[in-house]
């Protein structure tokens, strides 16, 4: 057991050291949601009135509405960044160091997911702190309740990123992930607008949003921030995390990349 804990600590510490050395990564991860909060939300505040919807007890500003979605945006981008880093490590050969560990590969991959998610949490809480100063102030206990929700959402998105990285032949193909994964996941979700508004616009778009796991991650975090639990969102996030993790482990094989390159 000690060996597993040491291994997990080592992987988390390495990710942390790499993160600390790439401070620009931290700031760019914050700039993106802050632009949405400070510029986009300010511009759309008047146009997008929000009715009273769960978990809120009263009318809320648009800024308040989008904060959970923007927190999850950080998790989404970091999950995909983790995927990019897996492809980079595979291309550069440093993945071999990880795989030479005598501990089981599923554990090593799970430890990578945990490390990615923990780093994401730091960035999310930095964002929530700035949002607090800006006036978006969920209950203080909500910030604590949101921790496991954010961790689960982070793990789900990191597992999705890992699964995607297994299918990416080389680093150059990563741009496709932006266009075909990040943007659809984000915009077809409840991050920026409540789903009933989407339903008014289009029934089929509504269903795409409702089925999108990212919507459930956003709702899980939104409810947790207001000291509530969305059971549906929790079950969907747990299920998608488990499915993506299992598929990522099953499809993870460094040999595949070599065979594909050779073919």
């Amino acid at each position: 057991m000690t060996a597993y804990l040491e291994c997990l600590r080592g992987i988390v510490l390495r990710e942390w050291l790499r993160f600390v050395q790439q401070r620009s990564r931290f700031f760019s991860a914050l700039v993106r949601p802050l632009l949405w909060l400070l510029v986009f939300a300010a511009g759309f505040r008047a146009a997008l009135g929000i009715a009273i919807i769960e978990p809120y007890d009263t009318y809320i500003t648009y800024e308040t509405y989008i904060v959970p979605g923007l927190a999850c945006m950080i998790l989404l981008f970091n999950g995909m960044q983790g995927s990019l880093s897996m492809v980079y490590d595979r291309e550069m050969g440093s993945m071999r160091v990880l795989l030479m560990s005598p501990l089981p590969r599923p554990f090593l991959l799970a430890a990578k997911l945990v490390a990615t998610s923990l780093l994401s949490l730091l960035q999310v809480y930095a964002f929530l702190a700035i949002a607090w100063l800006y006036g978006v102030q969920p209950p203080v206990w909500g910030l604590l309740y949101a921790l496991p929700a954010l961790l689960l959402a982070g793990l789900m998105l990191a597992a999705l990123g890992l699964l995607l990285s297994n299918g990416i032949r080389q680093l150059e193909n990563f741009a496709g992930v932006m266009n075909f994964v990040i943007f659809p996941l984000f915009f077809l979700s409840s991050a920026l607008y409540p789903l009933w508004k989407m339903r008014e616009a289009s029934e089929w778009l509504y269903w795409l949003c409702a089925l999108n796991p990212f919507s459930h991650a956003v709702e899980l975090v939104r409810f947790a921030l207001y000291e509530r639990l969305s059971v549906t969102a929790l079950l969907v996030c747990l299920g998608v995390t488990a499915l993506c993790s299992v598929l990522a482990v099953l499809t993870f094989n460094p040999q595949h990349a070599a065979l594909r390159r050779s073919a």
């Binding site: 992987i11 390495r14 160091v97 560990s101």
Partner: peptide, 21 residues
Amino acid sequence: TLDLDLSVEQNLRYHAALHGL
């Protein structure tokens, strides 16, 4: 397969941890 941005000892510690030392 060394991590160029980490120090010598950080690279070694990472390997030791992967082996559960």
